[in-house]
């Protein structure tokens, strides 16, 4: 190869890519308003973004998948948890995560700032981003399926059992994985409170258990799930 053709590769390659990239940037700006429904980008949302930056939330949490990987992604936090949960955990992380093996700092965020944060998360959660993260795309479908099933009298506990992926390891009525024990007769083996304990801290009842703990279930959900399982006493329902 001559020096001249080497230079052509350099200038040509760089220019082509740069022009293409700048054009796509221009086009992205044209489209991003619709994709992020910028019409809903209110002053409250912007104030929420400033709060999000002020407390450096993004160096523990990811949002749209970017940031620290230490804490849950916040892209869909509003849709997953709702405003009350967000208010609660930001206000008193030391209480909400008391039993969790990972903590969140108490940063004394004011109630007004939290309102802005909630507005920000609500807006972020509605960005049209090719259905990322995948589990929420599935949860979206699942919510629809669950609604159908609940109209066929599926209990809240049964829905939670399905939603939390328990089938991945446990069998119920012959359906599910082999890693954990069948749960068809779990209600005759364990009391409801023992089941609750087992879900929150599997190692307590069962030292060395390979079951992961589910520390993030709300108390209400935990109760519903345990109640559902305690009714599984063998035989058909």
């Amino acid at each position: 190869m001559s020096e001249k053709s080497a230079k052509i590769i350099f200038y040509g390659g760089t220019l082509i890519s740069a022009i293409l990239f700048l054009y796509l940037t221009f086009d992205t700006h044209r489209q991003v308003g619709v994709l992020t429904h910028a019409d809903k980008l209110s002053e409250d949302v912007v104030a929420g973004k400033r709060v999000f930056q002020k407390y450096n939330c993004n160096d523990c949490h990811t949002i749209l998948g970017f940031g620290g990987y230490y804490a849950p992604d916040l892209t869909k936090v509003y849709q997953r948890r709702g405003p009350d949960y967000i208010r609660n955990i930001v206000t008193q992380p030391e209480v909400v995560l008391e039993k969790s093996f990972r903590k969140m700092p108490q940063q004394h965020v004011s109630p007004e700032e939290i309102n802005h944060l909630v507005a920000f998360f609500q807006w972020v959660g509605e960005i049209n981003n090719q259905n990322w993260p995948p589990q929420d795309a599935k949860a979206g479908r699942k919510a629809g399926v669950n609604r159908l099933l609940s109209s066929a009298n599926m209990s809240a506990g049964a829905a939670l059992f399905k939603e939390n992926g328990c089938f991945a390891c446990h069998k119920l009525q012959g359906v599910g994985g082999d890693i954990g024990p069948d749960l068809d007769d779990v209600g005759s083996r364990l009391s409801q409170s023992q089941i609750e304990q087992q879900i929150v801290n599997p190692n307590k009842l069962n030292p060395g258990s390979v079951m992961p703990p589910f520390p993030n279930l709300s108390e209400q959900d935990l109760k519903a799930l345990a109640e559902f399982l305690s009714k599984q006493k063998g035989g058909a329902e």
Partner: peptide, 10 residues
Amino acid sequence: ERVLGLGFMT
């Protein structure tokens, strides 16, 4: 998390 849909902390 993404395939089975388990929670982040799990």
